[in-house]
Write a protein that binds this DNA or RNA. Structure first.
Lengths: 370, 370
DNA sequence: CGGAAATGTGTGCACGTGCACACATTCCTT
DNA sequence: AAGGAATGTGTGCACGTGCACACATTTCCG
């Protein structure tokens, strides 16, 4: 959890007041006393001020026959009183909130090490925005969050949900199934229902293609730093790697690390170098891992790409920060987000989503590391 | 916008179907046809199934006298019918949604280059979660977003808001003032109202402290790569730099770049080297900028810290990825988020927020780059 | 033993909105 | 000229909930 565990650190400068401690759960769950939130103007107030009835006000808001003078009076009253329609009432009546949830599961490491989730979010937001829907993103880190978010999803505040980075047997899947909430997944946990659409990339094919690039450029002892083998993306990338190598595949040359992050890359590469110093090619399961691998290779005095070829996955900002810059698989994160949003919007329109998933193209990006 | 502009890129592998194009605004804003969303159980249904009245059901949910047998029957009915309370109705009646918005303004570059926003979000979520409130984060990138988010904030879906990275004269400030929405800002745009609380760090003091570190370690020609001079953070860091140098300050040695990102760091450092090759110390306004500066120094054949000392700001993941690792100012992002959440929760409890802002401590982190 | 307190339950209303319906006025068409 | 369309407006109801209130039954205590 600590941003700064273990580094030599000297506090020579401390400013201001520490913030009050977070209260204990027992206290904070109690109902808060309710100071009357300031009274806001309603359609009734507008109608009274403009000398018309509620219905007419409703018609200027939602369309219908309204005379020019009535419209003018109502618009004046609205701007005078600072009227804003009440979404909660509208959602209750219409059974529509015009909002879609973006649920990020266990985002801790994602936010810190994977720039993809930000791009996916922005892509989804842009698509929803065009359809005049509000994206609201919800973060799930604890069991407590799971329960609260489930309530939120089922409570009429959102019309649908985009779910990112679900693991197998994630409780949120059951919640969405039980509620029959229009949804789309980014990636697909293995136990996902057939009728829930998902969007993703062909991890197997892409991993295979980039591994083949290592083979055709003459590498012979090729290893992989595999990560997140409890997720479909991790499993599939390993499968593609294996398929590409065929008889050359050697399970001794696969290092298994938990996360897609830089630190894991350093450890994984050190591990591989120890197992077989003659290694001359590495497929890292993410760009962050590849960056870590470069660091470990530098430590070991190996040159890249001269001595060892390294390829990554994601085409994230890591790829161009490294020295040398990474050859990698481009992951169209923004498009993935936008596509997931489309899948949800289509269901909200009443259309049946295509069974199964949408796979987006993943061009290879050739740079300097292999 | 493009993740991959300008690199040599070969598409050797294309899988699946491209996702349908985003529809044009004119079409998508129209009301969607409304397929009846599946009917969900209400308190009425539960009451009927359990053979009691709505009031009794309400009492098992919200507390009150209920006999053991009635309670049992109702709980059985609730789990049979899969009852979930309707938040929209509850929010309408109670004028409380138990949700707080986390508004990220212009997050494009933040998500891609600044790991802080993720940590701030997670800190806020943790604090709100303990108080049984749902954090919903909203992204504002376009004028269209501004308008929609304003409606959302005022529509009764949230009880308060945390606002991150507002610029001066940001329209969202006016919206919050007009609505009198309980709010807290992270950082403070110069035109923020006195009575709206904010949380942040002492940018002036921290910048001054880290610049003094350069001075005391013997650097004499010290420059700065200043960024985001339209935000308080950018202005204040420059002010602290200036104050620390006193008579040594030379405005020729300040490069001005728009964003806190890596690319800006590369450009800024090249610029400084050109202006004065004898430069021997650099304060970069962020770690990402410092990382870019290291790259530019490497290009120019300068050694760090031998030839030039470099210090950053943020203590983000950038700091430990660089070679050498960065000496920098630790920004307590998680605590900032949690503190902002507390400020909002306190207002929801009816307490008056302390006037002005909370400043959190920012220890100096000494590593290898200076 | 009679009234007050404690325990348990049902009913009506309000939250703010959108829409169906009823009604009023003007205009066009056969 | 008469009847139907087009235009404009007001009223009642429902969405699902929480709470105030009225009412019923039991228990307690002077």
């Amino acid at each position: 959890m600590s941003l700064n565990g273990g580094y030599g650190c000297v506090n020579v400068h401390t400013v201001g007041l520490a913030c009050e401690e977070v209260k204990s759960p027992a206290v904070t769950v109690e109902r808060m006393s309710r100071p009357q939130p300031q009274k806001r103007a309603t359609v009734h107030d507008i109608a009274a001020a403009a000398g018309v009835s509620r219905g007419t006000v409703s018609r200027v808001l939602n369309g219908g026959y309204v005379s020019a003078e009535a419209r003018a009076a109502i618009e004046a009253a609205m701007s005078d009183l600072g009227y804003v329609p009440n979404n909660a009432a509208r959602a209750l009546k219409m059974r529509r909130s015009q909002a879609v949830a973006f649920v990020a599961l266990e985002p801790h490491s994602l936010f810190l090490d994977d720039p993809n989730i930000g791009s996916i979010m922005l892509g989804a937001n842009a698509a929803l925005s065009l359809a005049d829907h509000q994206m609201v993103s919800l973060v799930v880190e604890s069991a407590r969050d799971t329960e609260r978010v489930s309530r939120y999803l089922s409570g009429g505040f959102v019309d649908g949900a985009i779910v990112v980075s679900a693991r197998a047997h994630d409780p949120i899947i059951k919640v969405i199934r039980d509620l029959a909430l229009p949804a789309a997944f980014v990636g697909h946990p293995p136990d996902l229902d057939q009728h829930i659409p998902f969007v993703g990339i062909d991890n197997v094919g892409s991993a295979r293609a980039i591994t083949e690039h290592l083979v055709t450029s003459g590498r012979r002892r090729i290893g992989m730093i595999a990560a997140a083998l409890d997720r479909d993306s991790g499993i599939d990338r390993l499968a593609g790697f294996r398929a590409a190598l065929g008889p050359l595949f050697d399970s001794d040359l696969v290092a298994d690390v938990p996360h897609y992050d830089y630190g894991s890359g350093v450890k994984g590469m050190r591990d591989l170098l120890e197992r077989d110093p003659s290694i001359d090619g590495v497929f890292a399961a993410s760009d962050a891992i590849a960056a870590g691998a470069l660091e470990a290779l530098r430590e070991a005095g190996r040159s890249v790409p001269g001595n060892v070829g390294v390829v990554g996955f994601d085409d994230s900002t890591w790829a161009v920060r490294c020295q040398p810059q990474l050859t990698t698989v481009h992951q169209p994160a923004k498009e993935i987000g936008s596509c997931a949003a489309q899948l949800v919007l289509r269901q909200l329109r009443g259309e049946h989503p295509d069974a199964g998933g949408q796979l987006l193209p993943t061009p290879l990006i050739l740079r300097d590391s292999a």
